[in-house]
């Protein structure tokens, strides 16, 4: 005797029903929660930018952002200008921090103009130029914010990732890795853009040499490290003309 649930017609009806129920449930949840999620992401961007310029609540060896409640206020307080560089033209834009770097990279690939956001922050009388970067790790996207001074020397860095291996590639967002970038030069001694290489076996694990354009890599995270190297080289190089202009003006 065939069971009711073995019938083809039942199977098809069940499948259709399930698709509707699950689809409706997920679609409803996704749209109902979207405003909150977008708001969270907006605050996170502000926290990231502030983190890179050293406005954070770091404790011991762990990286801690300013709280989400304080973020908008501190962002207004520390970030003096939000700029967008388009075809070499610099414009002010108070929503520059919302620019989707991924979309802009795709635009550049498609031959369209890439809008480059740059945030000018001031803290303790020092000026920081913070730029977002984005690239590929081992499994998925990696991105970050790098704060520079007018000589393109790194003043702070924040990295994040979507799905790097916990304990290995995921450690790019740990302070022992991010803090290594502080003080590193992006230019070589002749003033040409060189980037910063995440290097294996550079015989400088304490990162004493700040002008070698190298930081110490994480063991077991070679591909993620190479991804960091690549996104710094590719994305920060685009800002070189801005910094050269800055120098010429002085």
């Amino acid at each position: 005797m065939e069971k009711r649930t073995d019938k083809n017609s039942y199977t098809i009806l069940f499948a259709i029903g399930m698709v509707f129920v699950v689809g409706a449930l997920l679609a409803y949840l996704a749209s109902a929660l979207k405003p909150r999620i977008t708001e969270n992401q907006r605050l996170e961007k502000q926290q990231n930018i502030l983190y890179a310029m050293g406005v954070n609540n770091n404790e011991g060896t762990s990286a801690v952002f300013v709280s989400t409640e304080e973020a908008p206020e501190l962002f207004d307080q520390y970030i003096k200008q939000q700029l967008v560089i388009e075809n070499g033209e610099v414009k002010q834009d108070t929503t520059a921090y919302l620019i989707d770097v991924k979309k802009q990279q795709a635009n550049a690939k498609a031959g369209k103009v890439r809008r480059l956001p740059l945030f000018v922050g001031e803290k303790d009388g020092k000026t920081f130029y913070i730029a977002p970067i984005r690239g590929k790790g081992l499994w998925d996207a990696i991105w970050g914010y790098v704060a520079l001074d007018e000589n393109m020397i790194v003043q702070g860095a924040y990295f994040d990732h979507k799905g790097e291996t916990p304990g290995l590639g995921a450690n790019i967002k740990q302070r022992f890795f991010m803090d290594d970038f502080i003080g590193e030069h992006l230019l070589n001694d002749k003033g040409a853009f060189k980037g910063i290489v995440v290097a294996k076996g550079n015989a400088d694990p304490k990162n004493v040499n700040k002008t070698d354009n190298e930081v110490d890599a994480i063991a077991g995270a070679t591909i993620t490290g190479d991804g960091v190297t690549a996104m710094i080289r590719k994305d920060l190089k685009l800002y070189l003309p801005y910094f050269q202009n800055l120098k010429n003006k002085q």
């Binding site: 997920l26 949840l29 996704a30 929660l33 909150r36 999620i37 969270n40 996170e44 989400t68 994040d160 979507k162 799905g163 790097e164 291996t165 916990p166 995921a170």
Partner: peptide
């Protein structure tokens, strides 16, 4: 989704 909306920090740790 629920974590992303109500406990964003935690959701980032778990998304991996």
């Amino acid at each position: 989704l629920v974590l992303k909306a109500f406990a964003y920090e935690l959701s980032k740790t778990l998304s991996v």
